[in-house]
């Protein structure tokens, strides 16, 4: 059974611990700008949405890559970037209709959520359970993902 990130924006206090944890886990620095998960605030901070890749079945990024630098990890179901293979062309950043693959200027490659190999730092860092890592067939997750991909359909 694959697990997935379950996001409950109602519980998000916009503390940015997830961004810090993600950046530290993946980049070795506390720099929210390098986080693969991002908190978007609305209504002047009254509401916040943690936002990251849902590891969508369509994997538009993976199909757009010219050199097979993006592959799906069969253990975690995450689509991962191979830094050794990525040439930094950035086509995946414009092809992903969710905007969850970003160019990282300092490495010259792209970055995206890879579920930290199956132990996501954001979920561990979140003090309010706004981000949890749960079985992927959890009803709420399915509902969220169905909504997230609605209208996007297949990469066609």
């Amino acid at each position: 059974m694959h697990k997935a990130l379950l996001i409950d924006p109602a519980k998000c206090t916009s503390c940015l611990q997830c961004e810090m944890a993600c950046s530290f886990e993946n980049e070795g620095v506390f720099n929210p700008a390098k986080s693969r998960i991002k908190i978007f605030e609305f209504e002047h901070g009254a509401r916040a949405i943690p936002y990251t890749c849902t590891q969508c079945a369509e994997a538009w990024c993976l199909h757009a890559c010219p050199v097979e630098a993006l592959t799906r990890n069969p253990d975690t179901n995450a689509v991962e970037v191979s830094n050794d293979i990525c040439v930094g062309c950035k086509v995946c950043t414009i092809a992903c209709p969710f905007g969850t693959v970003n160019y990282n200027k300092s490495s010259g490659k792209v970055i995206k959520c890879d579920l930290c190999g199956g132990d996501p730092a954001c979920a561990k860092a979140c003090p309010t359970d706004a981000i949890t890592y749960v079985d992927a067939d959890w009803t709420g997750y399915e509902r969220m993902q169905a909504s997230a991909v609605s209208g996007h359909g297949r990469p066609a």
Binding site: K38, T93, A95, C96, P97, G99, T100, K105, G151
Partner: peptide, 16 residues
């Protein structure tokens, strides 16, 4: 613009 630029494609593709 390098962050979340793909949402532009998302909005166009889905005709949102």
């Amino acid at each position: 613009l390098t962050q979340h630029v793909g949402v532009i494609r998302g909005l166009i593709q889905t005709g949102t």
